[in-house]
Design a protein around this nucleic acid. Sequence first.
DNA 1: GTCTATACGAGGATAGAC
DNA 2: GTCTATCCTCGTATAGAC
Lengths: 216, 216
Amino acid sequence: MIEPAPAAWDNPAEDRGHTKAELTRRRILDAAAKVFRVRGFVGSRLTDIAAEANLQAGSLYYHFASREALVEEVMWAGQLRTEEQVRQQLAALGPEATPMQRLRTAVEAHLLAVLSSTDANSASIKMIGQVPPDIRERLLVGQRAYGDLWRGMLTDARDAGDLRDDVDLSIVRMAIMGALNWSVEWYHADKGNPEKIAADMAVVMLDGLRRRPDGS
Amino acid sequence: MIEPAPAAWDNPAEDRGHTKAELTRRRILDAAAKVFRVRGFVGSRLTDIAAEANLQAGSLYYHFASREALVEEVMWAGQLRTEEQVRQQLAALGPEATPMQRLRTAVEAHLLAVLSSTDANSASIKMIGQVPPDIRERLLVGQRAYGDLWRGMLTDARDAGDLRDDVDLSIVRMAIMGALNWSVEWYHADKGNPEKIAADMAVVMLDGLRRRPDGS
DNA sequence: GTCTATACGAGGATAGAC
DNA sequence: GTCTATCCTCGTATAGAC
């Protein structure tokens, strides 16, 4: 592979893509995610975001074409990161994991990604109902592979005979996503630790709230 | 009780509070709920709402002090109506219903209220994360009695020995509300009939997704 | 009560200096 | 690359006629 000139080692600030512009760009994205997460899309002004990134509002336009381009990039980053974190946890389970183990892991990983990862993760969920239709549409298309992952886990579990067969799995999937995603509306740091919440949610979804004589 | 003059029967348009102004006011509230439900708080302009109500934007100010006053009244109406519909279904069960029957009924009634009742019901849920902090705070205070209803049903069920005792009931409550409320983000009329969705959600929450040997 | 017309502020976006 | 200054659009809200 041919190294493009000038050689990276002559300019430390530019190696691995960390040019000044690139660093500022990321700082803006982080700042935007933080502001969007708290105030939502319409409630967030460019001056708020710029202030959070230690910039003037006009300077944002060197890095992003518009406020909408900025929000879309934040949301892509957030939803891709959530998906990636869930896939990583599933991969860590290894191929011998049962379908139910995979479901439990996915439930917990998704909630932890939303509650404890970057601001972009939760911002992308909070704003999905607030952004302009064209952006929303592109993001939903981008979620299809993630939706397929969940559909696959659920049908695998049913094929293995682990799931009751009197419920519609697409409704089940939306119920699970709702229980997990709605956490952006109520969770604050003092509501308990995310791992405990994730574990309880997984129990309720998979095993149900009802007490069982066998304690299962 | 003394009838205030002038007597209502002399002026049919005014009896039972149906003055012209009152009718227009309600038409505006309905129009606003419809627009808010689709576009959210920030995405809804007064001109959109006025057009939906067959009025000019300026005319809204005869009936409401501000856009915020309008959205707050829509949301109050929506959340009170949802609460009322749930309480009615619970009351219809009669006093001999078991705690689990009451929980199942409440889950189904809440979802049906959100999916099939007025636009205000779903708009109030969709916008809770979008309105200014002072409005949001008042609405959340107004939800406390409803939250208490759910807390009471859950603790009653646990006290009756029907619920597993290894999960935090406040987390369970938020999981249930999330699964139900998130439906405003994905439900469209072609997604199946609300009664079936409500029944499946209740099954998943209460009995769990896992197949049981006894088929319960 | 509802209209038309308009004042007003806010915030996104652009231009040009540095 | 980032700044300051400014333009321009849009939407809330108000004033006054009818």
